[in-house]
Design a protein around this nucleic acid. Structure first.
Lengths: 184, 184
DNA sequence: TCAGACATATATCGGAACGATACATAGGAC
DNA sequence: GTCCTATGTATCGTTCCGATATATGTCTGA
């Protein structure tokens, strides 16, 4: 999904400024499976306004900088629903964490343990935070929430279960950096 | 990880052309947690060669176009190991599939069922393919392989377990497109 | 008290990457 | 005989990320 569609999606759930839309991708339910940066959001909102898919209202605020509040229009809703009916792009997952562990023989065992523990804690905390959340207004929201929870929990469990055996194997394994030369 | 580092990583495991590196990101073990396109790989390889991190050998082939085979150098290995010791970037996951299911109240139940079934099959097939793979040369490779398998399996299980209840809820739920007006 | 960190808010810029396309050649399918 | 797939290199337009600039208020701790 491009950033314009993501902005429409946030606005479908209520009026918001660019800053608030960004927060939605930091903390909100979308944060687990979509990203958007300021550098993508602000141009996207300008384009949406130019195309009549959203309206803008400038709000003066005392103490804080002025705010531009965006609201989705009927055309905007139609475009969003249209996007929702296209064939979904394949999932894209990028993980430096797994990339590093893949080359565990280039890292010190202590560093590997750090990486794994940090990540396991992150997954556990995320699951706990998701369990605290009790407002799941739509069936779709609840289903996606449950999916994310299941996956995070499985990831944490795997790390916990296999951590020690992995570290032992790495420490025992005599092959340091695996190079082409080593194979020749 | 930027594309230059990813190319170094592939080359650490053996010499390869740009085309073969791309295939590695389509079918190889990296394909599950890193991506790279031709538009990123070819400029990256040129830059790596200019910086002396890889060497190039042009190979004529009968029947096929010429091939440029890249080989990682000692400097290249050092740079890769340096990257491996940096703090890992946070994981980035983008899923149009989850995005669409989030707005399930904008879709026909039949379409939702299609999306879920297709995705569940994909996860099941991926797990089966991973189980067939029997060459896991390094501990890191094996650990990451197991992690991926666990997560894919959990995802497939969740979809299978919750599919029917979800579809019933969606069909029963009277709220079609949830708009701001509906909340007012 | 006042420096520094943090939150709110909009916006742009350089560089990186995606996806499509171009070009070239060969083999197999229908 | 034409079309699709596979091998192979390369660029181009568009989009997007991450850092930075700018402005202002609050809160916190030496």
């Amino acid at each position: 999904m491009d950033t314009r569609t993501l902005c429409l999606a946030v606005l479908l759930r209520g009026d918001a400024s660019g800053y608030e839309i960004k927060k939605e991708f930091e903390d909100g339910p979308f944060s687990h499976f979509q990203l958007a940066s300021f550098g993508a959001i602000y141009p996207a909102l300008s384009k949406l306004a130019a195309d009549g898919l959203v309206t803008v209202t400038e709000q003066e605020q005392d103490g804080r900088p002025d705010k531009k509040v965006y609201r989705i229009t009927e055309s905007g809703r139609a475009v969003l629903v249209g996007e929702l009916h296209k064939h979904p792009h394949r999932d894209r997952y990028r993980s430096d964490f797994l990339f590093m562990l893949f080359f565990a023989d280039c890292l010190a065992p202590q560093r590997i343990a750090e990486l794994i523990d940090e990540r396991r804690d992150f997954y556990r905390e995320t699951v706990a935070r998701m369990d605290d959340c009790d407002s799941l207004p739509t069936p779709g929201h609840a289903f996606v929430h449950g999916f994310g929870r299941a996956v995070y929990a499985a990831a944490a469990d795997y790390l916990e279960t296999n951590r020690d055996a992995f570290l032992e194997t790495v420490e025992t394994d005599p092959s340091k950096i695996s190079t082409r030369e080593a194979a020749e």
